[in-house]
């Protein structure tokens, strides 16, 4: 599912117009992006949480040529699945 499908599904399941549904989704992901850029934690109960993980610089290799390359330090959002989603997505204990 992509952003456009999310928008039309949200529109169908609420009283929002298509433009409003699009705005809600934009607000949601923009807020998360802004938090990541500011290095803030994100906690969406039942869905997921994120924190920014700092990775140190290291010497890696170009897998094609085998050349050594210095990988600069980087920051990435680290995803942790929420309890509810984790339980819902996993195989059910009584599933056939």
């Amino acid at each position: 599912m992509n952003k456009l499908e999310l928008i039309s599904t949200l529109k169908d399941r609420t009283r929002l117009t298509k433009a409003e549904a699009a705005e809600v989704i934009k607000i949601f992901f923009d807020s998360l992006s802004r938090a990541f850029i500011n290095g803030e934690r994100v906690e969406i109960r039942g869905f997921c949480s994120f924190h920014i993980k700092e990775y140190k610089s290291y010497v890696g290799r170009n897998p094609k040529t085998g050349d050594k390359v210095r990988i600069p330090p980087k920051r990435l959002p680290f995803f942790k699945c929420g309890k509810e989603l984790k339980e819902r997505v996993d195989y059910k204990p009584h599933a056939p």
Partner: peptide, 16 residues
């Protein structure tokens, strides 16, 4: 708040 929860429910159902 309800709209946001509905949006999260759509995401969770899809992933599920």
């Amino acid at each position: 708040y309800e709209v946001m929860e509905e949006f999260l429910e759509i995401i969770k159902e899809t992933i599920e």
